[in-house]
């Protein structure tokens, strides 16, 4: 089956809240190790797409597979039934997410933020978790901040901790939802630097929702433009950004380049 070569595979994905159709039939495949950027206007459904992949939101229709396994359903005696919590947790272990507003745990030190899930969820020893956390925090340039609390960090530092925290769970797929858009402009660079390293140095599958066009162009294998819950256009960044075929894409790019 072809879909089994894909890391993520979505077919006819729909999501509505009440009568509002936020996603209206998304078909999208993401290859293992691919770096995919998702762009689109505010309210177009980009976050919703990531949140469904992270199982924070349930699709109204359609299906998603991760590594060929259905995310929101499971098979029982050949029939598809809604996923139970055990299935969801197994699927979730493949996915990690970094949020726009960091969502760090304010009552834990930086080190505890990074080690608590590995210790309690992956059940690795505290020593091992701490050694790995130190390694990850060094990588994101925060080796000296292990004992600080989140409230003592700048936005850029918080986001780098959040990235280290997600990486500590060894996800195969990492989702980044506008991870620099809550930051002061002078702090954006340090976070993009970390993402760039990840994109170039790891074979993790990365899906980034971003407004940083130059950055998306530099690190993505493919760019998807979403508007009104539909994929309008997709392709290699050089083409999407230089010669978009759809008017809506052109207009969107024009509007954010002017901003």
């Amino acid at each position: 089956m072809k879909s089994e070569q894909q890391m993520v595979s979505m077919r006819g994905l729909e999501k509505s809240y009440g009568g509002v159709h936020v996603l209206q039939g998304i078909d999208l495949d993401v290859a293992p190790g691919e770096k995919l950027s998702v762009i689109g206007p505010s309210g177009s459904g980009k976050s919703t797409l990531l949140r469904i992949l992270m199982t924070l939101e349930q699709p109204t229709k359609g299906f998603i597979e991760i590594e060929g396994e259905p995310l929101w359903d499971m098979r029982l005696n050949g029939r598809a039934i809604p996923a139970d919590s055990k299935h969801l947790r197994r699927m979730r272990s493949k996915v990690g997410m970094v949020f726009q507003h960091f969502n760090l745990f304010p009552h834990m030190t930086v080190l505890r933020n990074v080690t608590s899930a590995p210790i309690h969820v992956l059940r690795i020893s505290r020593d091992e978790a701490e050694a790995r956390a130190h390694e990850l925090l060094d990588k994101v340039g925060l080796g000296a901040k292990v004992d600080a609390y989140p409230s003592q960090l700048s936005g850029g530092q918080k986001q780098r901790v959040a990235i280290a925290r997600a990486l500590a769970m060894y996800p195969k797929i990492m989702l980044f939802d506008e991870v620099t858009s809550a930051l002061d402009p002078e702090l954006v660079g340090e976070v993009l630097g970390v993402l760039r390293e990840l994109a170039h140095r790891t074979d993790m599958t990365m899906i980034l929702v971003t407004h940083e066009i130059r950055f998306a162009r530099e690190i993505s294998d493919r760019v998807v433009f979403i508007d009104h819950g539909q994929i309008v256009e997709q392709g290699p960044p050089e083409r999407i950004f230089a010669e978009p075929t759809e008017t809506r894409t052109r207009e969107f790019l024009k509007s954010i380049l002017e901003a």
């Binding site: 199982t55 924070l56 507003h101 969502n103 745990f105 309690h120």
Partner: peptide, 24 residues
Amino acid sequence: DQREAAVALNMTRRQQLWLVIVPQ
């Protein structure tokens, strides 16, 4: 947002409650 961060780290409901929500 705190519960969602805990879900993204694959914590069980019980872990979400006792490690993340209750202390705060």
